[in-house]
Design a binder for these strands. Structure first.
Length: 421
RNA sequence: GGAGAGGUGACCGAGUGGUCGAUGGUGCACGCCUGGAAAGCGUGUGUGGCGCAAGUCACCGAGGGUUCGAAUCCCUCCCUCUCCGCCA
């Protein structure tokens, strides 16, 4: 949620942001709704104040044995009027809130302006895609041949966009999770294991609602949802709370499965593990002092990059442009790993600074002495485990179809150096 | 799932229809006292909306209702605890 004062005082900045994002939200109703709301509050409060003092008189009259019937009737009328005004106020606030909740975050000064994916700016690159010197396979062919990936059986169990990992494949996924968590623990992140099901308030708190309702799985008959990312439960740990200023920054990491209906992605990435309804992810979440969030985003990005480096996976870092950046983010870096099977760099982590956007909505504040304010929140994948497995298979494949396990991961694979038939 | 008891400010805990946004205690902050500290004494100490401000309104798990007036009464829901049942 953006600061309503920005709309009041710098309407043009908001309009510019919407243009930059290619968003077509209509803000014309704002000004009227805003002043209508303020007027209703002023009027209703005045009447409430009057009712309060008059009601006290009634109490006193009764005490003295006088008959308050006439005043009672008057206050009853006030009460009716207050009820009318308050319901009008509630309706106005709802409209205003719907409008505000639909406005994306103000962009960071350094977020590049652009129309879409193609305008993202590469800011860094690490490693060199291997020159294989043999006919390479993609992860589906590799994994199927090694009998570590089984999509057919998963389709029988559930349906499309699910996978069954077997043997060393299952082991590799688990190894990656543990490896990532251990690295991030070194980096200072507290490990948490949250519920994988959250309520509607939590979904709203991080901004998944109301925008992306159709992308999540809802439990039938309940106000419960399968988490689309650990960001939701972890950020909401501090919803409606004050964090002692001295405790900042607070770092969490969480491994969770993530569930996405991918309603808008029919026909995209249908092959293999790239886009699944369920995938594992280790997520990094930070709550920081507002002045520190720029610096913290760089650190967050480096912390995620460290995983790719240790796994010897070539990648590049993209600064997402205004037309491609997500709704709640002010600034975002995507880490894109090289996938030989596709001959492309593909997103494997998204590291975002939301500034106070989530914190305002979820009311996450810091307090130190007399000072208080909204914290800044950040998060990033560290990393998407399924896609890491894809990258690992494809980048570390050998001419005989076996997979070389990078050294950093071997302790997690019981010392194993290769996966082969 | 069944039966019962509860949810009040940072915490403990009073309050069962009216000067209660809420007694008291603990904690915390500041001041006095002290060589310094402890103890003691004094003062202060919630969040949010509206308002230039003075101030005002709302909030006692959430939402509705009754009433001139609700922390207090009624209804629905959520959560916690105890016992029983069931289960990993």
């Amino acid at each position: 949620m953006i600061d309503v004062n920005i709309l009041r005082n710098d309407f043009d900045a908001v309009k510019k942001m919407l243009t930059d994002r290619g968003s077509s939200i209509d803000l014309t109703a704002f000004s009227d709704l805003d002043s209508k709301r303020r007027q209703l509050i002023t009027d209703s409060d005045k009447l409430k104040s009057e009712r309060k003092s008059t009601s006290k008189q009634i109490g006193m009259m009764i005490g003295k044995g006088e008959d308050p019937a006439e005043i009672k009737a008057r206050v009853a009328k006030m009460g009716d009027r207050i009820k009318e005004m308050d319901s009008e106020l509630a309706q106005t606030e709802e409209e205003l809130n719907d409008l505000l909740a639909g406005i994306p975050n103000i962009l960071h000064d350094t977020t590049p302006i652009g129309a879409g994916e193609d305008d993202n700016v590469e800011v860094d690159r690490w490693g060199t895609p291997r020159d294989f010197g043999f006919e390479i396979k993609d992860h589906v062919d590799l994994g199927t041949a090694l009998n570590i990936l089984d999509f057919e059986t998963a389709a029988k169990l559930t349906g499309a966009r699910f996978a069954l990992l077997r043997g060393d494949g299952a082991r590799l996924e688990r190894a990656l999770i543990n490896f990532m968590i251990d690295v991030h623990t070194e980096q200072g992140y507290e490990e948490v294991l949250p519920p994988f099901i959250v309520n509607g308030d939590s979904m709203y708190g991080t901004g998944q609602f109301p925008k992306m309702k159709e992308d999540v799985f809802k439990l039938e008959g309940l106000n419960y949802y399968l988490i689309p990312t650990a960001e939701v439960p972890v950020t909401n740990i501090h919803r409606n709370e004050f964090i002692e200023e001295a405790r900042l920054p607070v770092y969490y990491q969480a491994f969770t499965p993530c569930f996405r209906s991918e309603a808008g992605a029919h026909g995209r990435d249908t092959r293999g593990l790239i886009r699944q309804h369920q995938f594992n992810k280790v997520e990094l979440v930070k709550f920081v002092h507002p002045e520190e969030s720029d610096k913290e985003l760089e650190k967050l990005r480096n912390d995620a990059e460290e995983i790719l480096k240790r796994l010897e996976l070539p990648y590049r870092v993209m600064a997402l442009c205004s037309g491609d950046i997500s709704f709640a983010a002010a600034k975002c870096y995507d880490l894109e790993v090289w996938l030989p099977g596709q001959g492309k760099y593909r997103e494997i982590s998204s590291c975002s600074n939301f500034r106070d956007f989530q914190a305002r909505r979820a009311r996450i504040r810091y307090k130190g002495g007399k000072k208080k304010g909204l914290v800044h929140t950040l998060n990033g994948s560290g990393l998407a485990v399924g896609r890491t497995l894809v990258a690992l298979l494809e980048n570390h494949q050998q001419s005989d179809g076996s997979i070389q396990i990078p050294e950093a991961l071997r302790p997690y694979m019981n010392g194993k150096e290769t996966i082969s038939k």
